[in-house]
Design a protein around this nucleic acid. Structure first.
Lengths: 143, 143
DNA sequence: ATAAATGTGGGGAAAAGTGGGGTGAAGTGT
DNA sequence: ACACTTCACCCCACTTTTCCCCACATTTAT
């Protein structure tokens, strides 16, 4: 289970150190891909496999199914850790999430998100300012 | 499993380097053909066989089934790698996908797509602009 | 306070991507 | 049937990126 917020830096080679607490759960294999909010998402193998299987089962003759497949799979990279517990983020993924040097690594239960630090701070600020309506929407979901 | 986005170039002889990560899975045999969206598609042998079987089973009495058959089978070429891990794309396939020099090679789980770089960037831009409806689809899948 | 673990930086070997010649087979036209 | 061109495939060479290793600073735990 991934929890917590960590501030790390991406070095000039595009490497990002993964919080030590997360490494064990990712060692068995994982995938990084584009998230829906201009951030990157790391799925451990099990999560990713079930997601990929669901998408693959859709009829690829439908245009929006192909679009969805491309969004999901084209951005994805097999996630590996080097001996220091770092991963190499491809240039196009860094570009997608506007990641330069400072990033926030966020544990979100079954998955991990990686944000450019500025974007993350903006999201946090927006969330806190917006607490009221968020509560209402969550109420609609029965939480 | 094919994943990721790679920017490669086609040289003057029409050769395209296949990402190293993909080579092993293609070495056992594969097929290149026209895709549905003005791109080229590379299917490993197993995938191609099941796709070909599926299409053959469709009622060839319907005009658009015949069109699909022609698109798929007439353009198909046996895929081979040279000693540098490159493949030779026939001129008519390059023409179909408007491929000149810069291309994007996209891993899509069971298949690989090859796009002219401009066309691919256009697809990506359209996808990002359309993020909302894709999020809904993912929600429908229970993600 | 000492030891261990974590995050960060960089050098160097290996691999990947790119370009270009040369040889032989296939196809074209006379 | 012949010369000629064109194309596919083999080899070699170069540049860039990736990966593996070592080193150091800072934090955490004992």
């Amino acid at each position: 289970m991934f929890l917590g917020e960590f501030q790390h830096t991406v070095d000039q080679k595009g490497r990002l150190a993964i919080p030590a607490k997360f490494r064990e759960a990712l060692a068995a294999g994982a995938v990084v891909t584009r998230g829906l909010d201009k951030c990157l998402v790391i799925y451990p193998r099990g999560e990713w496999d079930s997601l990929a299987a669901k998408v693959s089962r859709l009829p690829q003759t439908q245009p929006h199914v192909r679009t969805l497949s491309r969004l999901l799979f084209s951005g994805a990279v097999d996630f590996t850790l080097d001996s220091q517990g770092r991963t190499l983020l491809p240039q196009y993924l860094r570009a997608y999430a506007a990641i330069t040097t400072d990033v926030a690594v966020i544990g979100l239960h079954q998955r991990i998100e990686v944000w450019g630090l500025e974007a993350w701070n903006a999201v946090k600020a927006a969330t806190e300012a917006d607490g009221g309506s968020l509560a209402e929407q969550l109420a609609d979901l029965g939480i």
